[in-house]
Design a protein around this nucleic acid. Structure first.
Lengths: 227, 227
DNA sequence: AATTAATTTTAGACAAAACTAAAAAATTGT
DNA sequence: ACAATTTTTTAGTTTTGTCTAAAATTAATT
């Protein structure tokens, strides 16, 4: 199989990616209008492009019926998503970008065409399984582990994941996080849960810390099932 | 000044870069045919683009008279070259690409638009002054140190530079280099010169080694004047 | 100096990817 | 069920960057 050998334009790649995301894991067909809205273009432009992608059998399309990625198209989408997420890891882990600054740049980097580059980048980053937002990174063959978002307090000992959100966005809580060097994008592992008060010991990049039950109910972790 | 705020297309950037290189540091005007040949396009296409660049006052152009970058155009060229060379350093130093594999990928990466990205990449790489080919990396303002290529044997103690070529390309010599872990792209510094036989002690990434006069007369170093 | 040769520009066309305006199909509401 | 509304497609333009073929200009040769 050589789906990545296809010569695709930047615009085609953007459409494929958008269709993948809107189809919700390729489960439902995507409306022309939805694509237009997402990509900030006009529906007529979408129709044109969708016809072209259909010619290349990257999508299945019938007039007035919406569009769905073919298997080939799905693999193309996943290879773009793989690149996007690996670059995001690079930007955060190596260049010290903040968690929420990387998307725009990664949207450009994801279009760089070089298999060798992505292989070596992957190795350089230590074969990460999730990006800084906690979203899983597909492997070369488009296989990825599905992830779930849960509150720390709902997880058993041994769980591991990326901190991707807060429940309580009060200034006091955010200040606490900052003081304890907890940031979105950090990877945590639950080491111990205290029966008595529900407090937990978790390991962070900078060592292990103790958090109260109240804190654990206000932090979301993105968990990736180990294969 | 905000030359980098200009919205430039990929194609425009490629033309600017090509004109810069063909003009030999902006000293002589560049012929339409030369650009066409270099870019593998037709002279008529070049004329069209050159008119457009002239509109944007990136080049000075008079019919039938060739073209030369304006100061604005020169700064744009240098900002692209800066990006290209920083990415080359990244590919070699961080991703372990070989010296001669990086150009094609860097030609894509040089078009990524993000000042923050380049600043952080520069810092991550330790503010390198030369790329793996020994070519100098301009700073943010387009200032760079001119470099000279010389045989090791012609240099005084204390000289430092990047190994960029061989005089003797026999299998025996190349085998010797490999055995002593000397590769193109490595940085060397001359520590000591032995009066008696002209042999030298040079420091490499993996420690310091002794090389004979014969070897020193067969290795080119790209020297960058320290400012 | 005049003719030939090479280079450069103009003019007109094309493909990609977008647009506008209008027509066609599907969906919705009563 | 059918009129009204929404969605989607078609048809015809536009812009960017390319092309070919032909005309204009400059350079070279005898």
């Amino acid at each position: 199989m050589c789906y990545y050998c296809l010569e695709m334009t930047l615009s085609e790649e953007d459409y494929i990616k958008t269709i993948y995301h809107l189809s919700d894991f390729n489960s439902k067909s995507v409306a022309t209008n939805a694509i237009a809205e997402q990509m900030k273009t006009k529906p007529s432009s979408v129709t044109d492009m969708v016809k072209k992608l259909s010619e290349k059998s990257l999508v299945n399309y019938k007039k007035y019926q919406g569009v769905l990625l073919s298997e080939k198209g799905r693999l193309v989408a996943l290879s773009i998503i793989r690149k996007h997420r690996l670059w995001e890891v690079f930007l955060v882990d190596k260049l010290n970008f903040a968690w929420d600054e990387v998307h725009v740049v990664a949207e450009q980097l994801e279009h760089i065409k070089s298999d060798a580059l992505i292989d070596k980048l992957d190795a350089h980053l230590g074969y990460p399984k999730v990006d800084p937002h906690g979203d899983p990174i597909p492997n070369k063959d488009g296989v990825f582990t599905k992830s779930v978002k849960k509150l720390i307090s709902e997880l058993p000992v041994g769980s591991q994941g990326v901190c991707v959100g807060v429940n309580d966005s009060s200034a006091a809580f955010l200040k606490f996080l900052d003081k304890n060097k907890i940031a979105l994008g950090d990877t945590f592992k639950i080491l111990e849960i205290e029966e008595f008060d529900g407090s937990m010991t978790i390991s962070t990049r900078s060592g292990s810390i103790r958090i109260s039950k109240q804190i654990a109910t206000n932090l979301f972790l993105e968990i990736v099932d180990e294969e």
